[in-house]
């Protein structure tokens, strides 16, 4: 039993993402599209922008994560690489986790890295920036997990993308509420601990349950 398969898979996924180039930059493009378009829509008033900043950054993170889901398992499903997962010596759940990690590295991490810039552009109060980063750090992996589940469930259908959004939307409601709540609380000078704690609990729950559900869904869909 060798664990080399996991880094090999991760490296290959990242290499493919780089080779697709444009596609992997889409999350960032989305973040900035939202950052520029929303002020143009609602006006440049610092107070208003500061109020909606956490929500906007989080919606951008959500859209970025949604964007890459259609390609999470489908290309592998179509070229036969996915079924090879069941031949190996490794539990499929491990491979699923690796794939979700690469999704997070491509869609979640860039948003986190550029969040300080976005926060400045939207006049988010300074004391809220740390909490924003923390909420993204805890919350975006949940987005990847839930998105991965939706992608796995819709894999065997041929009109996946619309369904994907319908499935993801209700499941991410709590993430959005707790994460933006934390940032808003910090901006207003209250303690964000309760929100962040609940968000972390969600992450733990998602980390334990989602990979199993994804594995089961993939197994059914490759039949």
């Amino acid at each position: 039993m060798s664990l080399r398969a996991l880094p090999a898979l991760l490296l290959r996924d990242l290499r493919l993402a780089v080779r697709h180039g444009g596609e992997s930059l889409m999350p960032l493009f989305f973040l900035f599209a939202v950052l520029i378009l929303v002020p143009l829509g609602v006006g440049p008033g610092p107070n208003l922008l500061a109020t909606i900043a956490p929500g906007m950054i989080w919606v951008a993170a959500l859209l970025a994560s949604l964007l890459a889901l259609e390609n999470l398992f489908r290309p592998d499903f179509e070229d036969g690489t996915l079924e090879q997962w069941w031949l190996g010596h490794l539990p499929v759940t491990g491979l699923v986790m690796t794939r979700l990690l690469s999704h997070w590295l491509i869609t979640g991490l860039p948003v986190i890295l550029f969040a300080p810039l976005a926060a400045q552009m939207l006049y988010l109060p300074d004391q809220a920036l740390g909490v924003l980063m923390l909420s993204l750090l805890i919350g975006t992996p949940i987005l990847s997990l839930i998105g991965g589940l939706a992608a796995a469930l819709t894999l065997g259908t041929n009109r996946g993308s619309v369904l994907l959004s319908i499935l993801v939307f209700p499941l991410v409601v709590p993430v959005l509420i707790f994460a933006t709540g934390a940032v808003a609380a910090a901006a207003d000078g209250f303690s964000p601990r309760a929100h962040l704690g609940l968000l972390a609990a969600l992450l733990v729950l998602a980390l334990t349950l989602v990979p199993l559900a994804v594995t089961a869904a993939l197994r059914l869909n490759i039949e």
Binding site: L149, L153, L167, P170, L171, P174, A213, A216
Partner: peptide, 12 residues
């Protein structure tokens, strides 16, 4: 497949 979603929803 949809039954898996049903149970995920139940938790959620």
């Amino acid at each position: 497949v949809a039954c898996i979603l049903v149970l995920v929803g139940l938790v959620n």
